Amino acid sequence: MSGRARACYRERVRGAVVVALIGAVVFVASPARADGIAQRARQLRASPSFKVRLSAALWLAERRDVRAVRALAEALRHDREATVRALAAAALGRLIDESVAARERDAAIDALAAAARSDADVRVRRKALASYKRVRALRSPDGALPSVFVAIGAPTSRAPGVAAADVQVAVRRALRQAAPDFGQATQRDGWPTERALRRAGTAAFFVNASVRDVAVTRRGGRADVRCTVGMQVNVWRGADAAERLRPGEAASATGTGRVSAAYTPAAIAAARRDCVAAVLDQLAARQVAPFIRRAATTRVARGE
């Protein structure tokens, strides 16, 4: 196992321990309810079965808990079945109130607004619009934008077996790990306007990624997976602003990674994803996040 693969493995182990400890603490306070919400949220997010996801959404729709709101908002954005998205949209209209933390409340309201505007299914758009009208007054001014915001672009992937959607998820995770104080959103989530950014005093940036190559070489019973990944970042002035870059407002970085895995289709597929994710983690931590922090400080100093 390569150094990056070991790092990925250690990170997963640490994450599992943290989740287990948090689960234990919550279990003492309210065992059945906490465990049920976590379990249904996982089912809604990850189950390949439409019936399981629908059942989980129905169950969560009856729970007034911020984790239920978070899970349903994620389903509204990403579930592939319109019936699940429509149910999530209707439920959010009932569950969102002042008791939901501002960050989660704003994210859920933004998900409703995005679905009402651009969901592919007319039923989902109608449900989302009705719910949005009920709760839009609860949104924080200017969405409580953070001091630094990152608009996540649509990545490109030239590598078979590495989907662009998976790369986008990995980019978001890498930036969250490298800079948890940065706000971030994809275009589907909804991007703030130039006026909103100016009113909030937020320095904004656009980040994208590209998977340029993933090569698999057989070495005995093992697969040697190598990948080349790039990230690009530039100053961004809002969803409705024209691009007008100045010197020093854009940068790019490229990294390579290597992962060893068993020579089986499933192991190779996982190794491809792990290789790309490991390189993105390194680029975000060592190149992209530091560039954004420096550029954000410069923009604030200039009064932009």
Rank of each mutant, 00 (worst) to 15 (best):
residue 165 A to P: 01
residue 94 R to S: 14
residue 38 A to S: 15
residue 220 G to I: 07
residue 79 D to H: 03
residue 205 F to L: 13
residue 158 R to H: 13
residue 100 V to C: 14
residue 198 R to L: 05
residue 35 D to N: 07
residue 290 P to I: 11
residue 53 R to G: 11
residue 225 V to Q: 00
residue 233 V to P: 04
residue 245 L to M: 04
residue 44 L to H: 06
residue 63 R to E: 15
residue 71 A to F: 02
residue 24 A to S: 15
residue 9 Y to N: 12
residue 11 E to K: 06
residue 158 R to I: 02
residue 143 G to S: 08
residue 276 V to R: 04
residue 17 V to Q: 11
residue 296 A to E: 05
residue 261 A to P: 05
residue 183 G to R: 12
residue 146 P to D: 04
residue 59 W to C: 11
residue 66 V to E: 09
residue 190 G to M: 07
residue 277 A to G: 15
residue 102 A to S: 12
residue 63 R to W: 08
residue 275 C to I: 05
residue 58 L to T: 03
residue 292 I to H: 06
residue 99 S to R: 10
residue 73 A to H: 01
residue 160 P to M: 07
residue 153 G to A: 13
residue 38 A to E: 14
residue 265 P to K: 05
residue 99 S to M: 06
residue 149 F to G: 00
residue 82 A to I: 02
residue 196 A to Y: 04
residue 62 E to M: 10
residue 223 A to C: 03
residue 118 S to I: 06
residue 204 A to W: 01
residue 114 A to F: 09
residue 275 C to H: 02
residue 60 L to A: 04
residue 103 R to V: 12
residue 134 R to F: 09
residue 150 V to F: 04
residue 95 L to T: 05
residue 12 R to E: 14
residue 150 V to S: 03
residue 184 Q to S: 15
residue 261 A to C: 10
residue 267 A to I: 03
residue 66 V to A: 06
residue 280 L to V: 13
residue 196 A to F: 06
residue 131 S to K: 06
residue 33 R to N: 14
residue 293 R to L: 15
residue 160 P to R: 08
residue 145 L to D: 02
residue 145 L to E: 03
residue 94 R to W: 07
residue 202 T to P: 01
residue 3 G to F: 06
residue 28 V to D: 06
